[in-house]
Design a protein around this nucleic acid. Structure first.
Lengths: 333, 333
DNA sequence: CTGTTAGCGCTTTCAC
DNA sequence: GTGAAAGCGCTAACAG
């Protein structure tokens, strides 16, 4: 059934019906109510494609995820997608999903979306963003774990991780630790590596470059790095790992050396992915406020799409989640 | 730019251009090549909404996920989404995402999709499916961890979990275990509870109803159940948990009792979610072939959408993934 | 407040 | 093999 038949069955013109359905002010309350009621009754729904064609609005945004989600982890992705969808829906938008599995040119649907949310991976480049946003012609917001890219035609939601990391190592200092090992990943943040010495001495820890290892991204990398650190002649009494995955490897390494966590060594992770709460012991870690990140992203995007405002940049902090993987420095250390 | 301007700039009629772009046979090879080339050059892309309107094809399927993903876990969801997207894209379809966060009536977009993939949760009902599929009017496939629902107007992809579970406990028997505890979840499968006694005695284990606990779904439930089982006067030497989440709780329970896994107690999970590989020790578990499940789902859906064939039902098995949480029965037990 | 009508951009007959 | 023209179902501008 289309609007013509529907209008006919009500004895009204299609114009009136359309106005009623669109909640326009020019239609009498009585008529509107009647139209709405009968549409419900008869199950009449307007053809979305015709509406999109004539209005030029798709009410659809695309979520573009990196293929390789390493850092983000699946939990991150699902939570992010869920939060973005929620925000999008409240603004009246639907969510189209690209999980990065496709080869073909995405240009084929250039006009089928109103905006784009890109979840950036560590290796996302300016060229990627440029292509995805069609040189900035499609309103776009990029969600990144670090800093904005050098491409000002799109919006950015960025993470300020330093304060949260400072809180993490500061907690270790309060627990009496002095020698804290760092299991890093230059893959994600070379800036942290640079800031770390200052950060550590600031909170009262001793900085020792031999206790900072640039591991990779896999759990095994964390395992190996932790084995190295924990078998040092003068070993660290606590470890901070740049990701929970690395930290979970570190926990396994401690166990493999017959050490208890947190009895013999304290461990802190970063990201608060699902695993963090499920490992044994549950992991103290630095958490990202994903719903807020998503809400900010959608807000930036909507203001580009609807208000035609310029792209913007917003920052967001992290916070420490305390579980059971940290304790006081062991007496014999 | 629309097709009129584009055609004009080529000195052709819109009919010819349209035919060339649609790869119709009636157009001369020379013309076709020219049209395609210039479209690329000039960046001309046809308006998707106009095409959808006139063809009645949306080339879009919706993925409907349960809000509460407990069992499925996020990994399951992401992998499933990724696999479904991949299959969908090879068939030319895009993926619309509903993560179950919305309240409003989905009827508003009834005609904007060609088909629907529903990931069923344990509590998904016939009424849910009926509503989502618009009484079977929208081609639909339901992916379920157990059996088809009593609603034959849609397709189903089902999991045959029993053979995989049999393989799991059979492995425990081979390792010399006799007393195996079961941490179940009637939430997911009451059928397993019924089949278990037979299964256990079949593979050579002793069946003892006191060693079967109906836990809940949270990690803590697995923890509590395992504490109960492992402090029995005559305790089980191995545990099989219905989900990896429960199993991860069981590992923590063992640690809390000063037991080593697998030295003192062997533990097997089910589902092979991300966590399974990351806990300490990495968990032996029963795995689901998610990409295959997704591929089957999309195939069933496409044959409904394109070939107008009737809904079907397909089954799929699971397999055991051996990691490090199982070992021989301890000598003193 | 309501009815009439001109498109939105495309596909697809129907002529030639 | 190509061009002309009739819609697809809707919204919005224009009359009344």
């Amino acid at each position: 059934m289309n609007i013509v038949e529907f209008a006919k069955s009500l004895g009204l013109s299609i114009g009136t019906v359309s106005r009623a359905l669109n909640d326009r002010p020019e239609v009498s309350p009585v008529t509107r109510k009647m139209v709405l009621m009968r549409a419900e009754e008869m199950g009449f729904v307007r053809n979305a494609n015709a509406r999109r064609l004539v209005t030029g609005q798709n009410l659809m945004i695309r979520l573009e995820c990196p293929y390789n989600t390493h850092i983000l982890s699946d939990r991150y992705l699902v939570e992010m997608a869920r939060a973005i969808e929620e925000s999008a829906v409240t603004h009246g938008y639907d969510l189209l999903l690209h999980l990065g599995t496709r080869q073909r040119d995405t240009a084929s649907e250039i006009e089928s979306i109103d905006g784009l949310v890109v979840i950036a991976a560590p290796d996302t480049s300016v060229a990627d963003i440029q292509k995805l946003s069609h040189n900035g012609h499609t309103p776009t917001v990029v969600i990144t774990g670090s800093n904005p890219l050098d491409y000002p035609l799109v919006s950015y939601v960025c993470l300020d991780t330093l304060p949260g990391i400072r809180a993490a190592i500061s907690r270790l200092a309060e627990l009496g630790h002095r020698r804290v090992g760092y299991i890093g990943s230059d893959h994600y943040s070379t800036s942290l590596r640079r800031a770390l010495p200052g950060l550590m001495t600031e909170v009262g820890l001793t900085w020792n470059p031999d206790m900072a290892i640039d591991a990779g991204i896999a759990q095994e990398d964390g395992y190996n790095a932790a084995r190295t650190l924990l078998t040092l002649p003068v070993r660290p009494t606590a470890l901070f790992a740049r990701t929970d995955i690395l930290a979970s490897g570190a926990i396994q390494a401690a166990h493999s050396l017959g050490m208890f966590v947190p009895g013999d060594v304290s461990i802190i992770g970063h990201d608060n992915i699902e695993v963090a709460a499920l490992v044994s012991p549950p992991m103290t870690t630095v958490a990202i406020n994903i719903p807020e990140m998503a809400a900010i992203a959608v807000r930036l995007l909507v203001s580009q799409m609807v208000d035609k405002s310029d792209p913007g940049v917003e920052h967001l902090g992290t916070h420490l989640v305390i579980r059971k993987s940290c304790g006081p420095v062991p007496a014999d250390a």
